[in-house]
Simulated scan of single mutants.
Amino acid sequence: MESLEDLVRIKNTTNNDEEIIKFIIEKPEQVINMSIYNLAQATHTSTSSIIRFCKKCNYKGFKDFKISLIQCIDKEINDINNVDVNMPFRKNDTDLVIAKKISQLSIETIKATFNLLSSSKLQTAVDQIINANSVFAVGVGDNYIRLCDFKTKLLLINFYIKMTQLEDDQIRLTNLSTKKDVAIILSYSGETKKVLECAQKFFLNRTPIIAITSNEHSHLASLADQIFLIPNKENSKVSFSNFSSHVSIEYILNTIYSCMFSRNYLANCKYTQN
């Protein structure tokens, strides 16, 4: 099956052909739901211009052309894999292709993160959290948002973690920790200044640290008792957004929450339903 560009590639194009090609390339999913009259109106051409264009593409008419267009779109979507974590979509990608790429990126990220997990590490971390007198959580920016979602889930099973958004207050909060508590700390690089200040305070207080980071050789990792690694593929200089790291961190936190839930499954089921 040919690509979308190959599908509309013809020789000796007219101005009308150029308008039709441009519209099809930019909005292929929209075209498959359009009548020939709608397409003519959208491209400021005529139905006869569209029929001539389709025949130049070696199709009997617009209906035959749309069948190949649908097949072309399906193939392009189904062939998507190994999505670039820094630039997961391109300028000319259609909405549906972008949706597929983000979906594929999420799947690939979760698989890669799962492969970095171990049963013993999960069990130890979950036991530490459940048995701690208090649980502290530290993260800045987007990571704080991930922790807020984690905190909300834990409240559903009557489990509370201590955290605050203000960075100065985070430092003060660490002073309350003891060796009978546990701290969950998020930092993609493992070198975030404010996060490291908190980690060092926890370390001095002999508070066990569970770190989620992409860098096992970072300062944060060196202070942690348990390290949950996430894929280290993002480049902040060229990345559109931290899609991959967000998915990875949420996956780990959701896994920890689910394991905690399962420790007292029936009681937690009843609690969440009340």
Results as ranks from 00 to 15, higher is better:
L69K: 07
Y271A: 14
T272F: 10
A137D: 00
K179R: 11
Y265M: 13
I10V: 13
A221N: 02
T47F: 00
G139P: 03
D17R: 11
I256G: 03
N242Y: 14
L220N: 07
Q170P: 00
A211M: 09
F23A: 06
Q200S: 14
N235E: 10
Q170M: 15
K193Q: 13
F150I: 10
N205G: 05
L223M: 10
K237W: 08
D84W: 03
L7N: 02
N86W: 07
S218Q: 00
F53I: 04
D79W: 11
I98T: 03
M87H: 12
K194G: 07
I73Q: 04
L156K: 15
C148K: 14
A183T: 03
Y37N: 12
E234H: 02
S236M: 03
S245K: 03
S222F: 00
V247E: 07
S262W: 12
S177K: 00
S68R: 09
F202E: 03
A267F: 11
V85G: 00
M87R: 13
K63H: 09
N205V: 03
V85F: 12
L220S: 11
S106W: 01
H44I: 06
R172Q: 14
I209E: 03
N58L: 03
I145D: 12
F89G: 02
N175A: 09
S35L: 05
Y37W: 01
V8W: 11
I20K: 11
N82A: 08
S119V: 14
R263Y: 12
L176Y: 15
E2R: 15
I77E: 04
K201A: 12
